[in-house]
Design a protein around this nucleic acid. Structure first.
Length: 477
RNA sequence: GUAGAUAUAGCUCAGCUGGUUAGAGCGUCGGAUUGUGAUUCCGAAGGUCGUGGGUUCGAGCCCCAUUAUUUACCCCA
């Protein structure tokens, strides 16, 4: 006999876990739909040509590839084998499991460009797969819940992302969170303020780690990557600006002007956005857009600015982001980000549809689940949906219970009849173990008199009711 | 890919410098209660100690290998 097992990084979800997960999905779905997003589902399998090259070299290695059907080795030559796996791969696998929901979405938009109405808003809640090393909060199969908009540059989308993040977390009872926001334009301006020394991406990767490895760690890493000490000094002066959202914007602005950073223009903004800001703010796209997002949030009634943190060190890995970027962390839990996203100006470009701007974000359901569990915030506990258990002792009383069972179900009370004529004790233990709140006793005595006992498990109180009144009495409660 | 930790009953874990027949709690099953759960009491079943070698008179314990799990790094949700 072999020991049963499941693949690394995958999990079974029992009834209680599914109930809790469904609760999370429901909160997210309700929020997405209330903001006008429509559901989309895409295949588990995508063609590898769609997936490869979209997530960088490391991402490509994390893709699960699916072996071709039939004789998958029929096109393989001795040369291919000698060359190695890279030459072999396209010949044996042409499909792979989806790695995220954004790329399949982009593929869908490009394929259906003729029939979609833009701006197109969709949400998607499906599993994705990554051949990663599993660890805390990291699985090989996990669910993402994405909401994206394509076909508009409006910063209202960015503001609404913040609103949705806050609404979902609040709806789940997770009130102690931080939404970090930054802008790729701000990062670029910082890079320019340093005189454009070294590689831009090296800089972003290093500063993104600031909260993890600290100032000394980042300094060391930048020195290794060829940045000079005065440059690093300037960098930290910009990165460590203190104050409110607004104050940080102003201080960075002053820093950019001092450093002589060339203004990178401005996209159209709403007229009165910068009413209380001096003119130069408008000349840096990143700062301008962050200011506008803040104003749109204020106008939308957003009141949780203490949980919205403009963090110039937030970089995020995925290179396709070009505008605002977001990341959400739950405080007081050791867990990576539970949500993240941003704007990408050319998402569908690689699928032959250039110039379409998209903005979106994603929740990690599995991490939200782990956070809720760590903070003991789950309220859903149901092991079974059953509300009422009918007990019986013999074939005759079991038969006699069936009409009542049907009536209960018709009345919308999820009910079941214990399938075997076991000892009553066993039937009660079953109800107790599953958390079924009501037990109706239906023995020969009850059948003969037409009067049944209804026991409320939690209190132990037992009521005696004529058969005909049971459904009405239970419905009333 | 790099580094560490762990592997003993269905589950969570004890098991001393290597010493006779490997333990507990929970769970399961039976009984006290032949028609009443959760509480109480009594009893029972359940383990080739991850796998393969080695050292030793003797290995759950020491050594080597191997597999699985897990944590951190990288990267990410």
């Amino acid at each position: 006999m072999q020991k049963p097992s499941i693949p690394k990084g995958t999990r079974d979800f029992g009834p209680a876990q599914v109930a809790r997960r469904q609760h999370i999905f429901n909160v997210i779905r309700r929020t997405f739909e209330s903001f006008g997003f429509a559901p989309l589902e895409t295949p588990t399998l995508e063609n590898l040509s769609v997936l490869t090259g979209k997530y960088g070299d490391e991402g490509d290695q994390l893709l699960f590839k699916v072996l071709n059907s039939g004789d998958f080795a029929k096109d393989v030559t001795a040369d291919d084998l000698a060359t190695g796996s890279k030459a072999l791969l396209p010949k044996v696998a042409e499909k792979g499991l989806r790695y995220d929901l954004t790329v399949p979405f982009a593929r869908y938009v490009a394929m259906n460009r003729g029939t979609l109405t833009f701006p197109f808003k969709r949400y998607q809640m499906q599993p994705v797969w990554r051949a990663d090393r599993p660890q805390r909060g990291r699985y090989r199969e996990f669910y993402q819940c994405d909401a994206d908009v394509v076909g508009t540059d409006s910063l209202l989308c960015e503001a609404e992302i913040v609103l949705m993040m806050a609404q979902v977390l609040g709806g789940l009872g997770l009130h102690d969170f931080t939404i970090k926001i930054n802008h790729r334009g701000v990062l670029r301006n910082i890079y320019q303020a340093l005189g454009g020394e070294g590689r831009e991406t090296d800089l972003f990767v290093a500063i993104d780690k600031l909260d993890k490895i600290g100032r000394d760690g980042v300094t060391k890493e930048l020195l290794e990557r060829g940045f000079s000490e005065p440059t690093i000094e300037t960098l930290f002066a910009l990165l460590t600006v203190e104050g409110t959202y607004e104050e940080k914007l102003q201080r960075l602005l002053a820093g950019f002007v001092t450093a002589g950073v060339e203004p990178d223009g401005v996209r159209p903004t709403t007229p009165d956005v910068d009413a209380d800001s001096p003119e130069p703010l408008a000349n840096y796209r990143g700062l301008t857009e962050l200011a506008e997002v803040r104003d749109l949030l204020t106008a939308s009634g957003f009141r949780q600015f203490d949980r919205l943190d403009f963090d110039p060190t937030l970089a995020r890995g995925l290179s396709y982001y070009t505008g605002c970027i977001f990341e959400v962390k739950i405080n007081n839990v050791q867990m990576g980000s539970v949500s993240g996203g941003g704007r990408y100006d050319n998402l569908t470009g690689s699928f032959g549809l250039p110039g379409v701007s998209g903005v979106g974000f994603s929740f990690g359901v599995d991490r939200l689940y782990d956070c809720l569990e760590a903070l003991d915030l789950f309220t859903v506990t149901g092991e079974t949906p059953t509300r009422c258990l009918l007990t019986h002792f013999d074939v005759a009383s079991g038969r006699a219970a069936l009409p009542l069972l049907a009536q209960l179900r018709a009345a919308g009370i999820p009910s079941e009849l214990y399938p075997d004529a076991s000892k009553l004790q066993k039937q009660f233990k079953y109800a107790d173990a599953k958390g079924i709140p009501l037990v109706i006793i239906m023995g020969p005595e009850e059948v003969a008199t037409g009067v049944v006992k209804v026991k409320i498990m939690q209190t132990g109180v037992e009521r005696v009711l004529p058969l005909g009144e049971v459904v009405a009495a239970l419905t009333a409660e």
